[in-house]
């Protein structure tokens, strides 16, 4: 396979992004800088724009911890607010794939993605473990990004570690957790929110990391969850955790109920049932494998070399079940408790 001619310039692009971030930092009053932990790793976040920090930091705030040696640094600036452009693109238009990847960049030291709608350029230097993000204008960022920023970077970074990103939600009780995955509308959020309302710990809404060491673990990345308005009708006790009740899109901040990680006891795929009772039906690991792959690997914009293997290793060790959801939400929580106890 011949290397595209721009590959020789990829490190220059990373250097250019680094220099541009420094200029952006100089153009703002102060750089907002914090560290968070994901699994056993420290991640440093730097925002050279107060408005960007105000939007993107809250998703990580629950996991803030000080660290002097981060395993990953993400430096982000707003082109509109600072007047600082990213370096010129060293590739032609035909090298850009619709998913934001750049053809041929996957195995290289520098990975690049670009979102044409958000006008967001992302460059990650795997050797330096440093990513730079230039956002065209923070007002162009869709609201959902506030709950889960920098997913592409975190997937790239995880690909070089023992962490495997999963498109799944997760909750835990007494340090034992379940991964809940499946298509949109399958009842993933309802399942997890019912557990949180019952006092369980929140781990993840749609995105988390897993490890398959001596004991498979699930690790949180973001501390916020999306809340559909009808969820408050069924689970009114969650109202006290809503960040801004007047917001266009309701967001849940579980606060003290957030877990920093749990032993992974089961992988569940919910589906909406037709009765009040919730049933747990054991299914094969292959069935879950097919369900988890599209979201956990294909969304990775070129990441996923390790994820597929970790996913298979996980499913060989952790029981899998389909959750036929009943309308009685107390019954859903009771069913998950049985799953975690290993008695289902």
């Amino acid at each position: 396979m011949g290397a595209p001619p721009w590959k020789n310039h990829a490190v220059d692009l990373a250097d250019g992004m680094s220099a541009a971030f420094e200029r952006a930092a100089g153009a703002t009053d102060a750089v907002f800088e914090r560290e968070v932990h994901i699994g056993d790793h420290a991640v440093r976040l730097q925002f050279a724009a107060p408005a960007l920090a105000a939007r993107l930091w809250p998703a990580f705030a629950a996991f803030a911890r000080s660290s002097t040696t981060p395993d990953l640094t993400i430096s982000c600036w707003d082109r509109s607010a600072t007047g600082v452009e990213p370096p010129p693109a060293p590739f032609s238009l035909t090298e850009f794939l619709p998913n934001g990847a750049v053809r041929g960049h996957i195995d290289d030291r520098v990975r690049v993605a670009q979102d044409a709608v958000m006008r967001m350029v992302t460059v990650y230097d795997r050797e330096r473990r440093h990513a730079w993000v230039c956002v065209g204008d923070h007002s162009l960022i869709p609201l959902w990004v506030d709950r889960a920023p920098f997913r592409t970077i975190l997937r790239w970074w995880a690909d070089d570690s023992e962490l495997a990103p999963m498109h799944a939600s997760a909750v835990a009780v007494d340090g034992d957790g379940v991964l809940v995955t499946g298509a949109s509308g399958s009842g993933k959020s309802t399942t997890c929110l019912a557990c949180v309302a019952a006092g369980w710990s929140f781990i993840a809404d749609d995105f988390c990391m897993v490890t398959t060491g001596s004991d498979p673990m699930v690790h949180p990345v973001y501390g916020l969850a999306k809340l559909e308005p009808d969820a408050l009708v069924r689970l009114p006790s969650l109202a006290e955790h809503v960040v801004d009740p007047s917001a266009e899109q309701l967001v849940l901040d579980p606060g003290a109920n957030i877990s920093r990680g749990a032993r992974l006891r089961a992988v569940l795929i919910p589906q909406l049932g037709s009765t009040t009772k919730t049933s747990v039906i054991p299914i094969s690991a292959q069935e879950v494998f097919r369900e988890l792959v599209p979201g956990s690997v294909l969304e990775g914009i070129g990441a996923g070399t390790q994820t597929l293997g970790t996913l298979a290793a996980l499913l060989r060790r952790v029981p899998c079940a389909r959750l036929d959801l009943g309308s009685d939400l107390d019954g859903v929580v009771a069913a998950l408790r049985v799953v975690i106890s290993g008695q289902s």
Partner: peptide
């Protein structure tokens, strides 16, 4: 193909072309 990653779980194989996002299942 060097862009393809794959994994076998019992009698099921998933293969993914990381460059294009295309994925394949074999059982």
């Amino acid at each position: 193909n060097p862009w393809v990653t794959h994994e076998r779980l019992d009698d099921e194989v998933i293969a993914i072309n990381l460059e294009t996002g295309a994925y394949f299942a074999f059982s």
